[in-house]
């Protein structure tokens, strides 16, 4: 139907006039209901359905003028007292029209895509910047690693250092202690963990000195298993820092650390 109307050329008489009083009059329109008209929607009018001058195709909205104004065209202003009877001439827009539709279309998509790329890039940088403000600041990170000289710790002694505000136990174990830690049947323990998992180098045991029960600091070289003993509620840890007796649910935590054999240093953190 649309194409039919679009291609039909007719000379139309103006249907809407303005009286001298300013009241618009549409004398050519029948307000009667047309019973024979199948397309009527039951309303009082059976005008031509609204046909918009612009059709959209794709994203590159090419506009098509479907019908050139024929006959007398009446310009209507907000104030209707002035009647205009001149026929407007449609200006020549061909200069502004795209020379090549496919190039035009690709360019438009490309520009919009480029805007998307730049926006996404800028947004990503912005979000990263904001998120990085939540990260630890440089002065905290500078304190996050602690180095301990291994030569200063004799075999069979404990050293307690502070790392991120918590005590860290470092024990230089004797061969007997290693033997003891590795020989027991660890699979039956409360928190089953082998000594190989807990100590990178069997001679050196590094762990956080915080009882896993309620956070007290256990005492070294004491308890029923020759390891650590928490005085608060009586948790006994063995020489590998594993919970053996008492209320604590877990073994003493092993922090992240590296052993630098060349420099003779343990770096916690």
């Amino acid at each position: 139907m649309a194409s039919f109307v679009a291609k039909k050329y007719q000379t139309l008489a103006p249907t809407v006039r303005t009286l001298a009083s300013g009241v618009p009059v549409a004398s050519g329109i029948s307000f009667r209901h047309a019973p024979a008209d199948d397309h009527s929607h039951g309303g009082p009018r059976h005008d031509t359905p609204a046909l918009f001058a612009v059709r959209f195709s794709g994203s590159a909205k090419t506009s098509y003028v479907t019908s050139s104004p024929t006959g007398v065209f009446q310009q209507r202003f907000l104030h209707t007292s002035v009647a205009r009877r001149d026929a407007p001439q449609v200006p020549d827009f061909s200069h502004y029209k795209a020379k090549d539709d496919s190039v035009n279309r690709a360019t438009s998509y490309l520009m919009i895509g480029a805007m998307g790329v730049l926006t996404a890039s800028a947004a990503k940088s912005t979000v990263t910047e904001f998120l990085s403000t939540m990260a630890a600041s440089a002065d905290v990170l500078a304190l996050a690693k602690v180095e301990v000289g291994m030569s200063a710790i004799a075999e069979g002694t404990n050293v307690i250092i502070k790392w991120r505000g918590k005590p860290v136990f470092i024990r230089h174990r004797t061969p007997d202690e290693i033997e003891e830690a590795r020989s027991i049947d660890w699979k039956t323990l409360r928190d089953p963990q082998s000594d190989e998992e807990r100590a990178k180098n069997p001679e050196w045991l590094v762990m956080l000195g915080v009882c896993t029960h309620l956070g007290c600091v256990p005492i070294g070289e004491s308890g029923d298993y020759g390891g650590w003993f928490c005085p608060c509620h009586g948790s006994h840890y063995d020489i590998s820092g594993r919970i053996r007796k008492g209320p604590a649910p877990l073994n003493l935590e092993v922090p992240e650390y590296t052993i630098d054999e060349g420099e003779g240093k343990i770096i916690v953190g």
């Binding site: 090549d100 190039v103 279309r105 360019t107 998509y109 490309l110």
Partner: peptide
Amino acid sequence: MASFSTTLYNTVFK
């Protein structure tokens, strides 16, 4: 040019 833009449209934008 036109063929390139058509190819571009068909491969990426469509």
